[in-house]
């Protein structure tokens, strides 16, 4: 299961009876709790919010299908859940109220940066120079808004690589630690945690940089070092291993939250057969939700 130092051997796809996707979703889910909106900008982190609600944090308010449904019940995930959220939730959420909830810090979102650097700066806007980018992505969206309001920010990076964990982001959408934050006296949007397919990472506020909290089972420090575009401090001792998903987490994820396998489509593992199954499930779920109406 371990990778050989000095090689770029592929990640173990799964443990004895779980996959990396399942581990990542379960790990992110453990951080959600409280009477707040819980959501994720990546498929895995969105599934994690729903897993948390189904398992240990029923008080969470799930917002689904963009803002089509506020306080959605946890139903089997389908690729596009706008109609299910719209039919089953008590009401849509107004975008202005969403920003009020964010300002009041009653909102937890796990963001999905294209780049994150050792200081916790993150980027979803452009790669290269902004004026003539090599890749125009989607724009800053709500990240600068979240960073100026929420107490802390967490991240999910789908593929840990030297392209995603970089020395310096090409464009700062969300400010990490550093001189600019100190100058502004900015206390909001503090980088809190990053989960990738290799490990779980936190931040040392004194040193203002990212640290390894744990590596997933089978991932060596050497492997993580090679896949990271900035230098990690030499580990002082053995690096903790991320706790694998529990039996209860796996069962809930596979049977309640994502029985159709949307998590596989999100990481490019879907076969045409799986996609056909997912879209059929989507059509069926929309028809059922329409007939059923809001859950009291």
């Amino acid at each position: 299961m371990t990778t050989t130092p000095g090689t770029d051997a592929p990640l173990p796809a799964r443990g004895a009876d779980w996959t990396t996707d399942e581990l990542v979703i379960a790990r992110i889910a453990r951080d959600f709790s409280g009477e707040v909106v819980a959501t994720g900008a990546t498929v895995h982190s969105y599934l994690a919010a729903r897993l948390a609600k189904a398992l240990h944090a029923p008080e969470l308010a799930i917002v689904g299908g963009s803002l089509a449904g506020f306080d959605c019940p946890v139903t089997p995930q389908i690729p596009g859940d706008e109609f299910v959220a719209g039919h089953l939730a008590p009401a849509p959420l107004d975008w202005l109220e969403q920003w009020d909830l964010i300002t009041a810090d009653r909102f937890r979102i796990v963001l999905g940066p294209a780049q994150i650097d050792r200081h916790g700066n993150c980027n979803i806007s452009v790669l290269g120079d902004w004026s003539r980018p090599t890749v125009q992505m989607i724009g800053s969206r709500g990240i600068p808004d979240d960073a100026a309001r929420l107490s802390e920010l967490s991240y999910h990076v789908v593929r840990h690589s030297t392209k995603t964990f970089v020395e310096r982001v090409d464009f700062v959408c969300g400010p990490g630690f550093g001189a600019e934050r100190r100058r502004l006296g900015m206390t909001t949007g503090l980088p809190r945690r990053v989960v990738s397919d290799l490990g779980v990472f936190g931040f040392d506020p004194a040193g203002e940089h990212m640290v390894i909290e744990s590596l997933h089972p089978g991932v060596s420090f050497e492997h993580c070092r090679q896949r990271t575009g900035f230098a990690w401090p030499e580990p002082a001792g053995p690096i903790p291993v991320t706790a694998p998903p529990t039996e209860a987490e796996l069962r809930c994820l596979r049977e309640v939250v994502d029985p159709h396998g949307v998590r596989l489509a999100a990481t490019g593992q879907a076969t045409p057969e799986l996609l056909a199954t997912l879209y059929a499930a989507e059509r069926r779920a929309i028809a059922e939700a329409q007939a059923k109406g809001p859950v009291p």
Partner: peptide, 14 residues
């Protein structure tokens, strides 16, 4: 007025 954008690269774009 807003606090959105503080600390980011948005405010220094041409």
């Amino acid at each position: 007025p807003t606090r959105s954008g503080l600390g980011t690269d948005l405010l220094s774009l041409p």
